[in-house]
């Protein structure tokens, strides 16, 4: 017969393994990667482009939610980190798209203007 404290500890271990922590360890790498993606979108000009800004905010919200469930539901935390990364990457891509389209427009306007001068 096990002493009572030992039984309590065994239950606690079991609960830790099955319930609180989930089946996987905390997704620290995925979280760091999502943070990096958010930083890249911010540096890439996403805050200046409305569409990009929206997805940047969604990415940040997803990061917050992932942080909240980290340790208690690591599966969901990893999943939310993936959401945050894809939102941040989309924000970055949208910012780049807007910048590229601006450049194309001004280049085309330049062609038009030189054509008029002639």
């Amino acid at each position: 017969m096990m002493p009572k404290p030992a039984i309590v500890a065994a239950w606690a271990l079991l609960a830790g393994a099955l319930g609180c922590g989930g089946s996987i360890p905390p997704p620290n790498d995925a979280f760091a990667a999502a943070q990096a993606d958010v930083g890249r979108a911010q540096a890439g000009g996403a805050p200046d482009i409305p569409d990009a800004k929206l997805h940047l905010q969604l990415a940040q919200e997803s990061l917050q939610r992932a942080k909240r469930v980290m340790g208690t539901d690591n599966d969901r935390a990893a999943s939310l980190c993936g959401v945050a990364s894809s939102e941040a990457q989309l924000a970055f891509a949208l910012a780049r798209e807007a910048q590229a389209e601006n450049m194309a427009r001004s280049a085309q306007a330049k062609v038009q203007k030189e054509g008029d001068v002639r």
């Binding site: 997805h55 894809s86 939102e87 989309l90 891509a93 780049r96 798209e97």
Partner: peptide, 21 residues
């Protein structure tokens, strides 16, 4: 589903970027 959706949108944004370039 959100991840898949954002990846589809990202592909479109990348394509638009390439086209603009």
């Amino acid at each position: 589903a959100i991840v898949a959706d954002r990846k589809a949108l990202l592909a479109q944004a990348q394509a638009s970027t390439i086209k603009a370039q």
